[in-house]
Design a protein around this nucleic acid. Structure first.
Lengths: 335, 335
DNA sequence: TTGTATGCGTTATCAG
DNA sequence: CTGATAACGCATACAA
């Protein structure tokens, strides 16, 4: 079924069919109805590729996400897709994995599909060196780039993120204020956001004149899926250093530490205070419930969609939208 | 940048450029190199739409998933995408939501993009009536349809699933054997898989001559994200009926029940035995750890990809691949 | 081994 | 309001 078949059966030209398809008002009502009936009858759908050749907007946004099975990223994707969909945009979602070259390839691939804009979901797409980020600059020449939970200064790149630095800084400071000076900082990514969080921790330690805190900064490279493995890791650490508080850059890491505490016969929060990050559903799964930093993902996603719509409408929009997160206090902290 | 620009700059015809692009061996090495250099230099990527017009395979598979933020579905998508990618296929992922019409629209949309096959991730796409499933039959006329965690009899439709019926039947029977006769069955979806699980429970009850078990079958319609809301729900139920065992069709529901037990001062598993479903990371997040039915998602995903590759290669492949799940016993059961 | 010409299914620009 | 026709960028049979 092509537009030609429909035009034949309806006794009109393809131009008229095209007009009906695209909602032009310059079609006589009865002609329109005749065409629509044929379309309905033969269950005709225009060929997306031929349509794409016309070079106009396809009302499609490219979504790039490192790993759709990550709790945080999956939720982000969900919010953004819903927001775009309710504004008439379809989403093209690609999971790139964490390899830089793969990310570049996917980005090029998705641009070649003539998307109206690209959303990079999560901070894994921003590297540290100029060179690592060149592919983003290149892409921004062609379409607007939206960043969720990351920041990057460049024309046609819009950043929406949460002030992770301050969040961790304040959480760490609260813990110090509560008299806990030996804090374990646990992280699992060197992404943009991961670095900001780490810096927040370091600054808080320095500001209070804590020395030797570097030995309590630990990188976990396993999977977040495996809580018991995280607990093992915490157990290992406990043999080399002491800590009465934990700040983790992911809720799963924090819960792994709670499991370690339980195994070691420690009581949370009396013997060990724990703070997670993302304020995910995991916070309610453990006992006591996990205190966690909320980086207001939902608001970020909403702001991202609004900004994107504005950009596409040609309006001037803020290149940076920064949200303040907050520590949601539950049972794993006593302050 | 088009194929014409490249051909001009390289001093060859577009046919030659096309051959280089598509890896034809009928190009002289030095010619190939010249073309590749120009392509590299101008960072040229072929237009995906023009390419798609040629009507051949685009090495792309359409993935439809109701909700990418669902823990189980997100993981399924991840496994499938990885499997396809490592076999040279790109994935087009769409999150449809749970509305039937939306699902139909997405299915048509994705078919119009000339995918080589479609994977319906999760059992939410299979309805009970002939009519509800007509859209799947229609789609199967055009491309192979792969079902993950669901079953549907129709030519060109391939089902990969776990025997949910037996899994729940056996779990319930084990609980009955352990002397627990008042079992709460908690579920949140009437999907294909949801119905099979429920049937398994009902059969087990009937087989043992348990009467009045229907009042202990409860449907939870809230979000799985909110564990405390699930606990509230369980609390409500406990006021109308008594139960010393819980079987839930999702780990999150089971954990909600554990939270209820904790609030009510009940000890798990002494006062209440709990079994979840999916054997997800949540099982390790609670105390005691949750016994859960493993529906071997990873194996299902692997089998799906292998079957799909076979189908696309024109080989005869099994229309049904059924896996046996198993109960992974942890701390919430004493049998 | 390389080049030429045609078709793919739309949209958009003209005429009428 | 409607129709004819030219792009759009690429793949490919057919020629050379």
């Amino acid at each position: 079924m092509t537009i030609y078949d429909i035009s034949n059966k309806a006794g009109v030209s393809i131009a008229t069919v095209s007009r009906v398809l695209n909602g032009s008002d310059k079609v006589r009502p009865d002609t329109r109805k005749r065409v629509l009936d044929i379309i309905e009858q033969y269950d005709y759908t225009p060929n997306a590729f031929a349509r794409g050749m016309g070079c106009k907007s396809l009302q499609t946004i490219g979504l790039l996400c490192a790993d759709s099975s990550d709790l945080f990223l999956a939720k982000a994707v969900y919010y953004i897709e819903q927001g775009l969909q309710s504004n008439g945009y379809a989403s093209l979602l690609c999971c790139t994995g964490y390899n830089l070259d793969t990310k570049k390839n996917y980005l090029n691939m998705i641009i070649s599909k003539k998307v109206d804009a690209i959303v990079l979901v999560g901070s894994h797409f921003i590297g540290t060196t100029e060179e690592e980020n060149q592919y983003i600059r290149d892409a921004s020449e062609k379409v607007p780039i939206m960043l969720l939970n990351a920041s990057f200064n460049h024309p046609n790149v819009y950043s929406i993120y949460c002030d992770d630095y301050t969040n961790v800084f304040e959480a760490a400071t609260s813990m110090l204020d509560a008299g806990i000076h030996d804090i374990l900082y646990l992280y699992n990514f060197d992404s943009y956001s991961g670095k900001r969080k780490l810096n927040g921790f370091q600054s808080a330690m320095q500001a209070r004149g804590i020395v030797d805190y570097e030995k309590n900064i630990q990188f976990y490279e396993g999977s977040l899926e495996n809580i018991n493995e995280i607990a093992d890791f915490a157990d290992q650490i406990s043999k080399e250093t002491t800590f009465h508080g934990v700040i983790a850059c992911e809720d799963a890491l924090a819960i792994g530490c709670m499991k370690y505490a339980q195994r070691a016969g420690l009581t949370v929060p009396e013997d060990l205070s724990v703070i997670g990050y993302n304020n995910s559903m995991l916070t309610a799964c453990c006992t006591p419930e996990l205190s966690s930093i909320d980086n207001c993902l939902k608001s970020q996603a909403h702001q991202l969609v609004q900004t994107l719509l504005g950009v596409l409408a040609g309006e001037a929009m803020p290149t940076k939208s920064v949200f303040a997160g907050k520590l949601v206090k539950r049972g794993t902290t006593k302050f």
